[in-house]
Design a binder for these strands. Structure first.
Lengths: 205, 205
DNA sequence: TACTTAAGTGAGTGACGCTTACTTTGTCAA
DNA sequence: TTGACAAAGTAAGCGTCACTCACTTAAGTA
């Protein structure tokens, strides 16, 4: 009776259910949209009874939040990696972060939308807020190094926010299909670079 | 038995159920989020049985889409009105449109998110696509008049898209609470004006 | 006045969110 | 080694929801 589901489980105890549920939800959200998935289905994918998820998550929003946190962490990894490949403090490091951001959005639009679509008082969750701030900090630090100021400087924060705004808007409209990609039109990196230069142009040290 | 619900209905036939359901859903989406509402509850608010909505909408996504179309129309109205108060072709007309856009997002974040959060093949719906394009056209026309070109000019489209990107990003991050409003920080109109000027600066006629 | 039809009702179905009582398993102190 | 405990699973059940279907109501029209 342990092999009838898609996930094989050698013992009664799963051992890794929490992580596996997050993975399952990620897939489902990507294929069916954020409200097209069900906890029951995720449990089925993980090869576990429909009540099992509640040993790890208090309710549906809690599970979704965990998926969002996981997504933010993976996004941050990508951004960090992209920046690390460039010279520290270089403009290219900043734009690489933006390009990675847009790439993530296009790659996993379901999770991306989930991260920015949590309406149910998502700010009351500390870990989500922290994951968000740590991700933003990657950009913040890159900008700080470029202009040779501290990341807590108001001017740096303002400039970084401006970049984020522009890149985020482009990313969102892109995955929403508002931006029809036609030949002859600039690609993502053009918009990202433009956004970064534009924000830096008005940076008041 | 007709007065036990919140909406009074003089006759058996409602007469205006479709519009009233959209209104009810709008309220519910605003207070409970897009997935916190139920068709059954909307029907209750409208004072009608749980099966009645299906005489007007084929299913849940269809109803949500109608709410989104309604929202886009109201957004367009606001934008048009804001532009009309300024001189035709003036930069202030363009920025007024952007300010109206951000104001709408902050005013009705639930509907705003709904408009840009429809994942379930929202592009297959013609009326939604049309409503979106007509709304974008308001900005397009304002830009066209400002630079004295036709709205179908690729350069105009590019510039307008750039503005939209920036303003949309700011609007979205604002309602998501990513942007903590502190005293001493620029307000919405600053960002909007900045976005418009920035986009126009690189406009190649 | 009879006919047609749009727009309601209300009961029923299966899925889902979540709870509860119970069972299985690993851990760790005696 | 054992036995108590806690963590993590199961199965059944409750209320709600999306959606369907057979039926009823009322309004327009010939």
């Amino acid at each position: 009776m342990s092999e009838k589901t898609s996930a094989k489980r050698p013992s009664f105890h799963h051992g890794d259910l929490r992580a596996q549920l997050i993975r399952a939800v990620r897939q489902l959200v990507e294929t069916k949209g954020a409200d097209g998935f069900s906890i029951a289905e995720a449990a089925r994918v993980a090869g576990v009874s429909s009540g099992a998820p509640y040993k790890h998550f208090v309710d549906r929003p809690d599970l979704l939040r965990a998926v969002a946190v996981d997504g933010l962490n993976r996004l941050r990894e990508r951004m960090t990696l992209a920046a690390a490949k460039q010279n520290q403090g270089a403009l290219t490091a900043i734009t690489a972060i933006g390009v990675a951001y847009v790439a993530f959005a296009k790659d996993q639009p379901g999770v991306f939308r989930l991260i920015f679509g949590l309406t149910d008082g998502h700010e009351k969750s500390d870990d989500l807020k922290q994951a968000g701030e740590r991700t933003f900090a990657v950009l913040l630090n890159a900008v700080a190094e470029h202009v040779k100021e501290g990341p807590s400087s108001p001017a740096v924060q303002e400039t970084a926010y401006l970049m984020w705004t522009h890149v985020h808007g482009h990313a969102f409209l892109s995955i929403d299909g508002k931006r029809r990609e036609e030949k002859g039109r600039p690609d993502d990196s053009y918009y990202v670079e433009r956004a970064c230069r534009g924000a830096l142009a008005s940076h008041k040290s």
